[in-house]
Protein backbone atom coordinates (compact mmCIF):
# COMPACT_ATOMS: atom_id res chain seq x y z
CA UNK A 1 0.00 0.00 0.00
CA UNK A 2 2.77 2.37 0.92
CA UNK A 3 4.66 1.69 -2.26
CA UNK A 4 4.01 4.08 -5.06
CA UNK A 5 6.30 4.69 -8.00
CA UNK A 6 9.27 3.22 -6.20
CA UNK A 7 8.70 5.23 -3.05
CA UNK A 8 8.37 3.61 0.31
CA UNK A 9 6.83 5.89 2.87
CA UNK A 10 6.32 5.75 6.60
CA UNK A 11 2.68 6.07 7.62
CA UNK A 12 1.89 9.34 9.36
CA UNK A 13 0.01 9.06 12.64
CA UNK A 14 -1.76 11.68 14.68
CA UNK A 15 0.63 13.30 17.22
CA UNK A 16 -1.78 12.38 20.02
CA UNK A 17 -3.23 8.89 20.15
CA UNK A 18 -6.87 8.99 19.16
CA UNK A 19 -7.90 6.90 22.17
CA UNK A 20 -6.79 9.78 24.41
CA UNK A 21 -9.13 12.35 22.85
CA UNK A 22 -12.10 11.78 25.23
CA UNK A 23 -9.90 11.86 28.32
CA UNK A 24 -8.02 14.96 27.21
CA UNK A 25 -11.23 16.74 26.25
CA UNK A 26 -12.86 16.10 29.63
CA UNK A 27 -9.73 16.83 31.66
CA UNK A 28 -8.70 20.02 29.90
CA UNK A 29 -12.23 21.40 29.76
CA UNK A 30 -12.77 20.69 33.47
CA UNK A 31 -9.59 22.51 34.43
CA UNK A 32 -10.44 25.31 32.02
CA UNK A 33 -13.94 25.75 33.44
CA UNK A 34 -12.65 25.73 37.02
CA UNK A 35 -10.16 28.45 36.12
CA UNK A 36 -12.92 30.41 34.41
CA UNK A 37 -15.01 30.12 37.55
CA UNK A 38 -12.15 31.38 39.70
CA UNK A 39 -11.61 34.22 37.24
CA UNK A 40 -15.19 35.39 37.53
CA UNK A 41 -15.28 34.94 41.28
CA UNK A 42 -12.25 37.19 41.49
CA UNK A 43 -13.85 39.71 39.16
CA UNK A 44 -17.00 40.09 41.22
CA UNK A 45 -15.46 39.94 44.67
CA UNK A 46 -12.69 42.46 44.14
CA UNK A 47 -13.24 46.22 43.78
CA UNK A 48 -11.91 48.48 41.12
CA UNK A 49 -9.12 49.60 43.41
CA UNK A 50 -7.98 46.27 44.73
CA UNK A 51 -8.05 44.41 41.38
CA UNK A 52 -4.68 43.21 40.11
CA UNK A 53 -4.31 43.17 36.32
CA UNK A 54 -1.57 40.55 36.51
CA UNK A 55 -3.77 38.22 38.50
CA UNK A 56 -6.64 38.70 36.07
CA UNK A 57 -4.56 38.07 32.97
CA UNK A 58 -2.83 35.09 34.53
CA UNK A 59 -6.09 33.34 35.41
CA UNK A 60 -7.79 34.37 32.16
CA UNK A 61 -4.82 33.34 30.03
CA UNK A 62 -4.41 29.99 31.73
CA UNK A 63 -8.13 29.33 31.49
CA UNK A 64 -8.18 30.15 27.77
CA UNK A 65 -5.24 27.80 27.09
CA UNK A 66 -7.04 24.92 28.81
CA UNK A 67 -10.39 25.76 27.24
CA UNK A 68 -8.82 26.14 23.78
CA UNK A 69 -7.06 22.80 23.79
CA UNK A 70 -10.02 21.18 25.53
CA UNK A 71 -12.34 22.39 22.79
CA UNK A 72 -9.94 21.10 20.13
CA UNK A 73 -9.96 17.62 21.61
CA UNK A 74 -13.71 17.80 22.09
CA UNK A 75 -14.09 18.56 18.39
CA UNK A 76 -11.74 15.72 17.46
CA UNK A 77 -13.54 13.35 19.82
CA UNK A 78 -16.90 14.15 18.24
CA UNK A 79 -15.47 13.53 14.78
CA UNK A 80 -14.92 17.07 13.59
CA UNK A 81 -11.36 16.71 12.40
CA UNK A 82 -10.05 20.22 12.04
Amino acid sequence: MAVGLGEIGIPIYSPVSESLYPLLAVLLLTIGLLLTASFFIYEVTSTKLSRSLVHEFATGGLASVFLGFGTLFLLLWTGVYV
Binding site: T36, E43, R51, L53, E56, F57, A63, S64, G68, F69
Partner: peptide, 20 residues
Amino acid sequence: PLMLVLAFFAFFASCIAYTH
Protein backbone atom coordinates in the same frame (compact mmCIF):
# COMPACT_ATOMS: atom_id res chain seq x y z
CA PRO B 1 -5.78 25.11 18.80
CA LEU B 2 -4.03 28.46 19.16
CA MET B 3 -6.89 30.12 17.33
CA LEU B 4 -9.31 28.57 19.80
CA VAL B 5 -7.09 29.73 22.68
CA LEU B 6 -7.00 33.22 21.23
CA ALA B 7 -10.77 33.30 20.90
CA PHE B 8 -11.21 32.36 24.55
CA PHE B 9 -8.52 34.83 25.57
CA ALA B 10 -10.30 37.60 23.69
CA PHE B 11 -13.40 36.81 25.73
CA PHE B 12 -11.50 37.02 29.02
CA ALA B 13 -9.72 40.19 27.94
CA SER B 14 -13.04 41.83 27.13
CA CYS B 15 -14.31 40.84 30.57
CA ILE B 16 -11.24 42.40 32.14
CA ALA B 17 -11.66 45.53 30.05
CA TYR B 18 -15.32 45.76 30.99
CA THR B 19 -14.57 45.69 34.71
CA HIS B 20 -11.67 48.12 34.40
